[in-house]
Write a protein that binds this DNA or RNA. Structure first.
Length: 631
DNA sequence: GCAAGGTC
């Protein structure tokens, strides 16, 4: 018997082959230069295995020819127009390989990633194979990590494909297409003739619009910001340490107050006292936790913050490093290492490095090793991102991304930084103040992870019950600071939290709203801020003005889609019900949007016009203030 | 010329 195993991508088919064959296999090339077929016998199942793969989705959904041209129909018809499913043009060789191999096999075993998309891709593979071999037996291998014992178990105890999950994804695909195309064509066809500035597509998408919404919403907060004055009592003691005057400042436990008369009354009360009393001195061990194992979203967030590269660029570089075999698969939600994961040999590979080799060897030989922290997420398909080989010849940004991934990994495998914290509490005139000191005892992971800062702060000795005359006691004032515009790192975090996009697509959505000129990046020093263009503000505000209870530029609608997908996965809702309900809902919104589109037009007009008034900087679609600082 | 999700 021949069993045809199909994985979601080349790396997995290779790993599965290595494990199941014990290294004894033949390789055949295919018409696709990224895909290989591997043959070997698998005595446990008394079968010959052929392992191959696809590269993500093979099928593509689009409207039938009758509705494909932009002016072929009223965009509203796209909510019901026929949709055809066909092999994507660039996946022809992959599909042909599947059918050719299926013809030789009696059983088809699906080895795609064990997530919703994987289940849907599995269903695509089944569909393609059954076109040429309707009777082929279909099984599903279920695995949660690419480790020998699990892969053998999956091969020997296959389950059934989960068509609920596959249907949930199918529903999302169809809805995104209908909604995206209908609104995009409507917006573009309405706005383009009215504004010479609008030359490209005015796209709408259920992920890109909420993404734009986040940028506009922060921009509005910055615009609406009114600085507020506050007051606080500043208390300090000067020590004469061998002639050097050193001031120890104390923080008021009330923080600061916005009411001057209250702050002033308290201050006057304080001044009546002559001496401050040390009420409590607390000394305790403290630690600064090492970072969690690295996920895709975290790589993009901290990478763009620390390395000043765009999230998309970081992911592209990580992908390339992966292709070269330097790092593990870069798209993962997992922030915990499997207990059986062989960390030691990966650490050993880094001993050769000039910069962090000594640290790696201290982990390996010097007892510096500590099991990584376990986060809460596991996608059951890929481990956290880690270096898989030592790379000594990288340059430029590739080198910096590899260095970050490697230092992060070594930091995860070392110990938390240890310190000793002293808190001195003081009472003066009925008010409480405190000061904190920190002595760093062991830097541990900080030695290899310079991206985290932890500074010690010396505090003179204070004894409980002691009294002193403060050197400084003043009522000082300050003002609240303007919030900053969003950085790409901020936006990645907000999208992740709101479930907009996935780890692999978040960066793409950000690029899309920049490509469409809804948002314009602006450099302020080395930090890149995202500023909505006048056009983007006009669109987002225009839709807000229409008064949907769940605006098209807010995240709720996408959250509903997600909830419905979960219901379809659980079998409490059918794919058709989900599609019909959502289509009805969006049809209503479309009609409402179209009849009230004058509001969007006037909102876009007022913003673009404001921008192109003579003498005010031309019509580069860019408006708004300079990014606010954080201090 | 439309979407978002896989993958390269």
């Amino acid at each position: 018997m021949i069993v045809l195993c199909v994985a979601e991508k080349p790396s997995i088919s290779k790993s599965i082959t290595n494990i199941l064959s014990g290294g004894q296999f033949q390789t055949r090339s295919t018409r696709s230069n990224i895909i290989k077929n591997y043959d070997f016998s698998y005595p446990h199942s008394r079968a010959n295995f052929t392992v191959t793969c696809v590269a993500g989705h093979v099928l593509q959904h689009d409207f039938a020819q009758s509705h494909r041209k932009w002016h072929s129909c009223d965009p509203f018809e796209l909510f019901d127009a026929p949709i055809v499913t066909e092999v994507a043009p660039d996946k022809k060789a992959i599909a042909d390989n599947l059918t050719a191999e299926a013809l030789k096999a009696q059983q088809l075993m699906i080895w795609t990633d064990c997530d919703r998309e994987g289940e849907n891709i599995g269903a695509e593979i089944v569909k393609i194979c059954r076109r040429v071999k309707p009777g082929i037996i279909v099984k599903r291998a279920r695995f949660s990590a690419i480790i020998s014992q699990q892969i053998h178990h999956a091969a020997q105890h296959p389950v059934e494909l989960d068509y609920f999950q596959a249907s949930a994804v199918e529903a999302r695909i169809i809805l995104d297409l209908r909604i995206g195309a209908a609104f995009t064509r409507m917006q573009t066809r309405t706005l383009q003739p009215l504004f010479q500035q609008i030359t490209g597509v005015v796209s709408y998408g259920p992920c890109q619009f909420p993404t734009l919404g986040f940028v506009v919403s922060r921009f509005d907060q910055v615009q609406a910001f009114q600085p507020e004055k506050f007051w606080y009592i500043y208390l300090a003691l000067c020590h004469d340490v061998t002639g050097n005057k050193e001031e120890t400042p104390f923080t008021w436990s009330r923080g600061h107050l916005f009411d001057f008369s209250v702050a002033y009354a308290l201050y006057v009360g304080v001044l009546e006292d002559k001496m401050a009393r040390v009420t409590k001195v607390t000394k305790k061990n403290t630690k600064k936790w090492k970072p969690l194992p690295l996920t895709t979203v975290e790589l993009q967030k901290s990478g763009s913050r620390l390395l000043k590269l765009s999230p998309k660029k970081i992911l592209d570089i990580a992908e390339h490093l992966y292709q070269q075999g330097f790092v593990s698969y870069p798209r993962t939600e997992t922030d915990q290492f499997d207990p059986q994961f062989d960390l030691a040999s990966l650490i050993a590979k880094q001993v050769a490095d000039l910069a962090w080799g000594a640290f790696a060897s201290s982990l390996r030989d010097g007892g510096g090793f500590s099991q990584p922290r376990r986060g809460k997420n596991n996608d059951q398909a890929h481990p956290p991102i880690h270096p898989t080989a030592h790379a000594g010849n990288l340059t430029g940004d590739e080198k910096r991304v590899y260095e970050f991934i490697t230092r992060r990994f070594l930091a995860c495998c070392s110990k938390d930084a240890l310190g000793f914290e002293t808190t001195v509490e003081v009472e003066y005139g009925g008010e409480d103040f405190f000061a904190k000191g920190l002595i760093i005892l062991e830097r541990n992971y900080l030695e290899v992870y310079p991206y985290d800062k932890w500074n010690g702060k010396e505090l003179p000795d204070f004894e409980e019950g002691a009294t002193f005359v403060p050197s400084v006691c003043e009522l000082r004032d300050g003002t609240t600071t303007k919030p900053s515009l969003l950085t790409e790192a901020d936006l990645v975090g907000i999208m992740d939290k709101n479930g907009i996009g996935t780890d692999a697509t978040i960066a793409q959505h950000i690029d899309t709203i920049i490509d469409r000129e809804y948002v314009i990046p602006r450099m302020e020093g080395s930090v890149k801020y995202l500023v909505p263009s006048t056009f983007g503000i006009g669109l987002a505000n225009g839709y807000n003005d229409i008064g949907f209870d769940r605006s098209l530029s807010k995240p709720q609608l996408r959250r509903e889609t997600e909830r419905n997908m979960v219901a379809v996965c659980q079998g409490t809702k059918t794919k058709n019900d989900m599609i019909v309900e959502a289509v009805e809902q969006y049809k209503d919104m479309y009609i409402k949007a179209k009849t009230n589109f004058a509001k969007v037009i006037s909102s876009v007009r007022s913003h673009i016009d404001r921008d192109s008034r003579p003498g005010e900087g031309g019509n580069d679609r860019n408006g708004g203030p300079r990014p606010g600082g954080n201090n």
